[in-house]
Write a protein that binds this DNA or RNA. Structure first.
Lengths: 160, 160
DNA sequence: AATATTATAAGAATATTATTCTGTATATAT
DNA sequence: ATATATACAGAATAATATTCTTATAATATT
């Protein structure tokens, strides 16, 4: 059951989103100055954007190296979910090292993104966490050698 | 040339990171209260974490649906980079719809993550953007039906 | 061991922001 | 035409951010 949602954003909202996307800690006063509006007006809009779930959350992007998490991997997982469920997906989502879980087309499968200290951490995870999920039929792991870009910025429409 | 870096974080830093990871807009005063410290002390630490590049940036996570970006895809790209370079990777990184570019092991390839309006947007991107990169030998596209989890939270060490 | 040196944090003072409230204008609906 | 809702400015106040000074502890130096 998907909840039907109407967002209805105007150019000012887009500008706010653009600023927030660049730096989520930009303060109200600065946004107001940049857009030539009153802080109270910006505050109202930001709160509305949060309420409408246009802005979902504010994250700090932490350097994985600083926490010694040097290995990034993608794992394709073939699984036999009970029809119409995502049992495996939900189990995968619970694993802290798993940053993303996507249900993908074809192959009854999932694609997950995993961050571990190193190769041995990955092996542990596959043995201890994935190994416990019986519905998993097979996995195929892709190791990332180097990340060239990693953002979640969306392309924000500009006025025609 | 990778710059050698020493981070050296203590438990208080970890706690700050934990809070920031949950909500990057948590204000200094609140963090201070939560950790039972003076705001000025927290401010110093946060600034240091930024300087040391432990905190890389603050992002607002925007709902892709709100911007009508309903299709998420992963594309494996086989390419013939000039040896020792990432020419293709850098070109891929410039495409706004491309959120991630990873250089992956084996296959001389990249894995990219792409967000577009819909299937036709994806086709356009492949034709207009990827099509222009001559070094690309082949691509294999995986469509995401549904995303179960999508975060970039790291596992933060706890005191032993 | 004594003395610098450095790093860390508290606390107070001040600058800046966030937030609330009121009034007004504009758009939308009835 | 009148009511209703929405968006915004501007002012007042509450709360935070930021800077500075001082104290303390940890580390290094002689």
């Amino acid at each position: 059951m998907t909840t039907k949602m109407e967002f209805s954003l105007d150019q000012i909202d887009y500008q706010i989103l653009r600023i927030m996307q660049e730096n989520a800690r930009t303060n109200n006063a600065d946004i107001a100055r940049e857009l030539g509006m009153a802080p109270s007006a910006i505050l109202e809009r930001v709160k509305k954007l949060e309420q409408k779930q246009v802005i979902l959350q504010y994250n700090a992007k932490i350097n994985p190296d600083a926490l010694d998490q040097k290995l990034l991997s993608f794992i394709f997982i073939k699984a036999q979910d009970p029809i119409g469920t995502q049992k495996v997906g939900l189990l995968l989502a619970k694993i802290p090292e798993v940053q993303e879980v996507h249900d993908i087309a074809g192959d009854d499968g999932y694609l997950i993104k995993v961050r571990t200290n190193d190769a041995s951490g990955l092996v542990d995870l596959m043995r201890n966490s994935l190994g416990k999920i019986e519905e998993i039929i097979s996995t195929r792991t892709t190791i990332v050698l180097e990340t060239v870009k990693e953002e979640q910025k969306l392309v924000i429409p500009t006025e025609d």
